[in-house]
């Protein structure tokens, strides 16, 4: 019921897990979708181009209002992150194991945000300004600032992981328990899927992206 991701094979000692395989499938799917949406772009857009433009305008507006006009360069990364997380959190609906229900996946993504935060803070403020940031508002708070900084990727990754794994476990229990309740076998999973996959999945993708934006843009000031 709550087994870890299945291990399909081992290559040079690295296990190929269901998380990785599903991740590759999703990546291929998103790549194909993007290629389809941006094929032969014209001044007067066709249907796929309208959808692509809507998505891009949406993320541009969100990036501008959250990170400011000078940080628009982050928009493509944030859209990539959001598309990947959105699809990854929703694949539970078609019976695949969401790769985001694996801590290695979510922690890797939160480490990306963490290192981006540190790198762009260094770049924007210089080494002196960066180190001084840890001594504010008073130098006594140095240990707390460091711990607080390290706690960010932990809470970021576990928020997504906990929500997705929680949904996975509860759905597994519902499907396991349904064998004895044939009459409700359809209604209960639909409601549960709506909350755990659709609502929680999309919400957690949005929150992951928003928090990444805020962490990075705040570190740069």
């Amino acid at each position: 019921m709550i087994n870890g991701p299945r291990i399909y094979a081992e290559v040079f000692g690295i296990p190929i897990t269901a998380t990785m395989v599903n991740m590759w499938i999703i990546m291929a799917g998103i790549t194909l979708l993007c290629m389809f949406l941006t094929r032969n772009l014209k001044r007067v857009p066709g249907k796929p181009q309208v959808i692509a433009e809507m998505i891009v305008t949406g993320i541009n507006n969100l990036t501008e209002s959250t990170m400011g006009k000078q940080n628009m360069g982050f928009a493509p990364y944030m859209l990539t992150l959001f598309m990947y997380l959105g699809v990854a959190n929703l694949v539970g609906l078609v019976g695949m194991r969401p790769p985001t229900a694996d801590l290695t996946m979510t922690f890797a993504l939160s480490l990306l945000t963490f290192f981006m935060t540190q790198f762009f803070a260094l770049k924007a403020k210089g080494i002196g300004g960066y180190l001084k940031g840890y001594l504010e508002p008073i130098p006594l708070l140095l240990p707390i600032n460091i711990i607080g900084e390290l706690a960010n990727p932990i809470s970021l990754s576990f928020r997504l992981f906990g929500n997705m794994l929680g949904g996975l476990i509860i759905m597994g229990l519902i499907y396991g328990g349904l064998t004895s309740l044939m009459h409700f076998a359809i209604a209960i999973p639909i409601v549960a899927h709506l909350y755990f996959d659709l609502f929680a999945g999309l919400l957690q993708s949005f929150i992951f992206v928003m928090l990444s934006m805020v962490f990075i843009s705040m570190a740069m000031e």
């Binding site: 576990f158 928020r159 929150i207």
Partner: peptide, 11 residues
């Protein structure tokens, strides 16, 4: 989402 952090750490 931020207010939830300690709940996540408990998990």
């Amino acid at each position: 989402a931020v207010a939830q952090t300690t709940g996540i750490l408990a998990l």
